[in-house]
Computed example of a mutant assay.
Amino acid sequence: VSTYGDEGYTFQLPKSRKTAQSNLATMKKNNWIDRSTRIVLIEFILHNKNLHNYCFVK
């Protein structure tokens, strides 16, 4: 088990799946994501309107 500090870079993916895939491909092409990348975290929140529940996914 490892912990990661708060240093690093962030990028907010757009809501459009096609645009998000394109952005990730561009990051990989420009070596933003490469063999030295230790971790890529994806976080999002789901909301169920019927039950008024929120679920945080990491």
Rank of each mutant, 00 (worst) to 15 (best):
V1C: 08
V1F: 12
S2W: 13
S2D: 06
S2A: 04
S2Q: 08
T3D: 02
T3L: 06
T3H: 14
Y4C: 03
D6Q: 12
D6S: 15
D6R: 10
D6N: 11
E7V: 13
Y9A: 13
T10M: 04
T10V: 13
T10L: 08
F11E: 00
L13R: 00
L13A: 14
P14M: 02
K15T: 11
S16L: 05
R17I: 12
R17E: 12
K18D: 01
K18C: 04
K18R: 09
K18G: 00
K18L: 08
K18Q: 04
K18W: 00
K18S: 07
T19R: 07
A20E: 02
Q21M: 12
Q21V: 02
S22Q: 05
S22Y: 08
S22F: 00
N23E: 11
N23V: 05
N23Q: 09
N23T: 04
L24Q: 03
L24G: 06
L24Y: 00
A25L: 11
A25S: 14
T26K: 11
T26C: 03
T26S: 09
T26P: 04
T26D: 13
M27N: 11
M27Y: 14
M27D: 01
M27F: 15
K28F: 14
K28H: 12
K28N: 07
N30D: 10
N30M: 09
N31Q: 06
N31Y: 07
W32M: 08
I33L: 07
I33V: 15
I33Y: 10
D34W: 09
R35D: 10
R35C: 10
R35F: 13
R35L: 10
S36Y: 14
S36K: 13
T37D: 05
T37V: 05
R38N: 06
R38K: 13
I39L: 07
I39V: 14
I39D: 04
I39C: 10
V40L: 08
V40T: 08
L41K: 08
L41N: 11
L41A: 02
I42E: 01
I42V: 15
I42K: 01
I42G: 11
F44H: 09
F44R: 02
I45P: 01
I45V: 15
L46S: 02
N48H: 07
N48F: 05
N48E: 01
N50H: 07
N50S: 07
N50L: 07
L51D: 03
L51N: 14
H52L: 06
N53Y: 08
N53T: 09
C55Y: 03
C55H: 05
F56Y: 14
V57G: 01
V57Q: 00
V57F: 07
K58L: 02
K58E: 08
